[in-house]
């Protein structure tokens, strides 16, 4: 699905991302962990062609993502509030995204159905613009919009941050069921080690822009991660 080769992003004074190779197979769920400044968000931005790599290429389905549009049709993403059009109501926003993917009003409603629990009655029919929602609810809107088109590839940056405990658990189940139902490939970064090991079957640890560990999730993964991050 995603192939990263010799990807480097360097600013004048620092190298933020330096990845020799990363291969994500279709249907894989990859969790990205690492402390602040490890380069997770920059890596995601390069996967989404939002940041120009200093060197190296990202290909999605064998087509370089830079300056192409093909990947946009099967990739859903939510990194931060910059991905929301915050002066729309959630309904208008879902409609706009749905229209771009050729979904009918009925399709949109049906696809939002699984989000019903996560939304907890606080998102739809609130007669508010997205900008007036709390951070947590904005995040829910963003995640739902990213998954709306049932994309083959879903990229989420810290989806569990700002969510209340119940919502975190609901989101976890939701992501797992999306993966099972549609075989979505997922790339998820998180600071919550237990959530990310539960959702993903592969964990990649980034440190100072480099991949330092890449492992399949097993029984002992959580302990291994905790040991790694204990200083």
């Amino acid at each position: 699905m995603i192939e990263v080769k010799d990807l480097v992003k360097a600013y004048s004074d620092a190298t933020v991302v330096d990845i020799r190779a990363l291969h994500v197979a279709p249907g894989e769920t990859v969790g990205l962990v690492g402390n602040n400044g490890a380069g997770k968000t920059t890596l995601f931005r390069m996967l989404l062609d939002l940041v120009r790599p200093t060197t190296g290429v990202v290909t999605s389905k064998d087509i370089p993502v830079a300056h192409t549009d093909a990947w946009k049709h099967y990739t859903g993403s939510h990194l931060d509030e910059g991905f929301l059009i915050d002066y729309l109501t959630p309904e208008e926003y879902f409609k706009f995204i749905g229209d771009l993917h050729g979904l009918s009003a009925g399709d949109i409603q049906e696809r939002l159905q699984p989000f019903h629990d996560l939304f907890n009655g606080e998102i739809l029919r609130q007669r508010k613009y997205i900008r007036d929602f709390s951070k947590g609810n904005q995040k829910k809107v963003g995640i739902a919009a990213a998954a709306l088109s049932h994309p083959e590839l879903l990229i989420l940056d810290e989806p569990f941050a700002n969510l209340d405990p119940s919502s975190q658990i609901r989101l976890k189940n939701l992501l797992r069921s999306l993966h099972e139902q549609f075989g979505m490939t997922m790339l998820i970064s998180s600071h919550d080690l237990s959530h990310v090991t539960e959702v993903c079957d592969r964990i990649v640890i980034l440190e100072k822009g480099k991949i330092v560990q890449d492992m399949q999730t097993t029984e002992g993964t959580l302990q291994a991660l905790e040991a790694y991050f204990t200083v």
């Binding site: 989404l48 062609d49 939002l50 549009d69 946009k72 049709h73 990739t75 993403s77 990194l79 931060d80 509030e81 910059g82 991905f83 929301l84 059009i85 915050d86 995204i97 771009l100 993917h101």
Partner: peptide, 13 residues
Amino acid sequence: SAHFDALLTRPIS
């Protein structure tokens, strides 16, 4: 500017 990333990652040429 507040949602430029949104426009860039969606299928809009």
